[in-house]
Amino acid sequence: MSDEAAALAAFGYELGLLKRIRRTGWWHAGVRDPESVAEHTMRSAQLAALIATEEGANPERAAFLALWHDTQETRTGDLPHTATKYLNKPEPREITADQTAELPEGSREAVRAAVDEYESKESPESLCARDADKLEMLLQAVEYRDIGVQRVDGWIESARKGLRTESARRIAEAAVTLSPLTWRDR
């Protein structure tokens, strides 16, 4: 077995942790079993592609950026917003550099470039991916609200205020008025 293949396999195992790491902020709202970081990432990537399509940006690139936006949480866990007062925010690029240090050059550079672009907040695709991250949280909050979790309004408003693209704003407006329980009726 090659060292490159072993490094890719090891990173694949590390990424698998995202399936078990829960989005911890939801515990503050009373959600007993919140979605995993991997579940959040999946819908974020899908939404990033849709938002980018509507915004005239590259949907594949936006989805790719969204796929990597929380991978650093394999090393830090999911830090809730309430922790930011007490902790210095970990630098995603630094964590990604450590995570990818042993990967073959092409894979290493692809992941690092995606995280850098996402964190730079400059390209249209990064703005779409960042909006997808917020929009996914908003959708999740509405879903939790519709099953009886009461303390999610702050998450919904925070997400709405942070949206930068017109498409994401329109989707958010529709999401807060359309019940997740009736979406199939449309």
Score class of each variant (00 low, 15 high):
56 G>F: 04
183 W>T: 11
180 P>Y: 01
94 E>M: 07
142 V>Q: 08
55 E>Y: 01
163 L>E: 01
95 I>G: 02
179 S>R: 00
72 Q>D: 15
139 L>C: 14
67 L>D: 11
105 E>F: 03
127 L>W: 04
179 S>V: 06
122 E>K: 15
124 P>C: 05
143 E>G: 12
129 A>V: 11
107 S>N: 07
51 I>D: 03
145 R>K: 15
115 V>T: 05
185 D>Q: 10
131 D>M: 10
167 S>Q: 07
113 A>R: 07
119 E>F: 08
76 T>A: 04
62 A>H: 02
89 K>G: 01
67 L>G: 04
148 G>R: 07
89 K>W: 08
119 E>D: 14
166 E>I: 00
158 S>E: 13
115 V>W: 03
134 K>F: 15
58 N>E: 06
182 T>Y: 09
102 E>F: 03
73 E>L: 11
72 Q>F: 07
152 V>I: 12
179 S>Y: 02
139 L>V: 14
75 R>T: 04
117 E>L: 00
173 E>A: 01
116 D>T: 15
162 G>T: 02
123 S>A: 09
55 E>L: 00
58 N>G: 01
171 I>M: 11
107 S>R: 09
114 A>L: 01
161 K>N: 11
130 R>F: 15
119 E>H: 05
74 T>R: 13
101 A>K: 09
115 V>A: 03
78 D>K: 06
148 G>K: 05
84 T>F: 14
81 H>W: 13
79 L>C: 04
74 T>N: 00
76 T>G: 07
50 L>N: 06
181 L>E: 10
127 L>N: 09
79 L>Q: 13
153 D>E: 15
176 V>F: 08
76 T>D: 08
119 E>L: 06
71 T>D: 02
109 E>W: 03
68 W>R: 14
69 H>Q: 12
165 T>L: 03
82 T>K: 08
176 V>E: 12
178 L>F: 06
164 R>D: 02
141 A>I: 09
77 G>K: 08
150 Q>C: 06
176 V>G: 01
97 A>K: 12
93 R>H: 09
148 G>Y: 09
166 E>Q: 13
181 L>T: 09
153 D>R: 10
60 E>S: 09
135 L>Y: 05
149 V>Y: 12
158 S>T: 13
121 K>P: 01
125 E>V: 08
50 L>Q: 12
142 V>F: 14
167 S>T: 10
72 Q>R: 12
88 N>R: 08
51 I>M: 04
136 E>W: 05
149 V>H: 06
66 A>D: 02
98 D>Q: 08
145 R>L: 11
169 R>E: 07
